[in-house]
Simulated assay, not measured.
Amino acid sequence: MKEIIAGNLTRYRKGLNLSQEELASLAGVTRQSIHNYENAKTLPDSKTLSTLARALGVKLDDLLRKESTLALPNFRFRAHTSFDKNPQFAAQVLRLLEDYTALEQAVGIPTYAPESTPCHQLEGNEKRIAEIATQFRHRLGLGDGPILNLFEAVEEIGLKVLRQDILIPGFFGLSACSLAQGAFVLVNSYNITIERQLFTLAHEIGHLIFHRDEYQDNLIEEGTKEEEKAREAVANHFASHLLVSQEALERALNVFSNVIELKAHFRVSYTMMLMRLEQMGKLKYSDAIQKIRGEYKRQTGESLPKEKEIEPALSAEDFPANQRFTKLVWQALSEGKVSELKAAELLNLSVDCLRQSRKEARVYAIDAIF
């Protein structure tokens, strides 16, 4: 156990770029104590170990876990960026996936993963990718019109989706898949518009369909930049056709006169709308984006940030996060499959708040919604 804790302390400390002295200060121990812990000379007591976990931004279990188990059996991952230098994030992802999978197993519900259809380049495959997007829409029962809430639609067929605030610049999402336990998508919601979150979800579904044979056992990216660029182009093309179907767009072009009206109608970002219009040969993306930015600056006197959505923008209040996960927690709790303490942890509530919510649900006889 000394060796396991020693390795984990060192890895998580370096993941935060902390010196031994800095970690010692955060944990209220001496630098020599940290040195001894990391060299497996002494073992921290339970109180110190818990303090170290908090200081390192991980759970106590993460410090006790063998490094060889930092990947879930049967699950393979697809991440746009390498996270081997961010072990705290890798541990967080594994915990989220472990918890979600355990909940599904506890309540005995079936899992889901989209059918895999390998495709590694966009050129020459545009029509095929668009057709697969249409087929996936039919799997969701959406028809060809605007999608009201893609999060809800994919959760209803069993896709594991979690939206979390991840404070990693440039990170939008990742996906994982297991033949036995289904597919999982993590979407970053930290200061990211709903429109961009929806695109990330659609994009990762594209990767699950077209690139699942390339997923890895951990969160480390492999392959050349050219290969990654080709995979991204395929996933982007799929996402654009999933969010805005060809048939509906052709009809809409007879009704709406500009990009803002189109984006509001289809409930997507203006950049997503420009992408689809360029695919149809209606405009050149680079020229259109410059025109929009110029008009925005003329009207506001400010530059249009890349992360900002042009109004009307979708409201986060209309897209409650993690509804399927939350329902599974309450179901597992009501069936006695998880404790109140565990349920409160999963829902990020205090035990008192959890008990109050259960009490209110019983008073109004709405246990069924949980």
Rank of each mutant, 00 (worst) to 15 (best):
C177E: 08
K342Y: 05
S178L: 09
R137C: 07
P73G: 02
F171D: 07
D217M: 14
G108P: 06
G145S: 04
N191A: 10
L162G: 05
S25F: 10
H203E: 03
F210H: 12
D165R: 14
M280T: 06
L148I: 14
G336S: 03
T69K: 05
S339C: 10
E3C: 04
R267Q: 14
A233N: 07
Q92L: 13
E345N: 10
F370D: 09
M1W: 08
F199T: 14
Q92T: 09
E232S: 06
S245A: 12
S350R: 09
N218K: 01
L9V: 02
A106Y: 07
H120S: 15
E195H: 10
G143M: 00
E104L: 00
K263V: 12
R13E: 06
A230T: 01
L52R: 09
I205P: 08
N149M: 12
T271F: 06
L148M: 14
E309Q: 11
G281C: 04
K85N: 11
H207C: 02
D99K: 07
E104T: 00
V259F: 08
D367H: 13
I289P: 00
Y285L: 14
H265Y: 15
S350V: 02
T81L: 14
E311K: 09
R76Y: 03
L49Y: 04
E360W: 07
V154A: 09
R362S: 09
K225G: 08
A321S: 09
Q290L: 07
G57I: 01
R139E: 15
I166C: 11
I4K: 10
S240P: 01
Y270R: 03
L208Q: 09
E250A: 10
I34G: 10
I5S: 05
I4Q: 08
L122C: 00
R163Y: 02
A53R: 00
P305H: 01
Q92P: 02
P305Y: 02
E261D: 13
Q290G: 13
Q197S: 10
R95Q: 11
T193P: 13
K342S: 07
I209C: 03
F89E: 00
Y285Q: 02
D61N: 10
A344M: 01
N348S: 03
Q323P: 02
L253T: 12
E67D: 02
T42M: 04
L96K: 06
L219Q: 10
A113P: 05
R324P: 05
N258I: 08
E307I: 12
H241A: 12
A264Q: 12
R65T: 07
I157V: 11
H80W: 15
A79R: 05
L16G: 00
V338H: 01
K359A: 15
P320F: 03
E214F: 08
V351I: 11
S269H: 08
R95I: 05
V29N: 03
D61T: 04
K263N: 06
E278L: 05
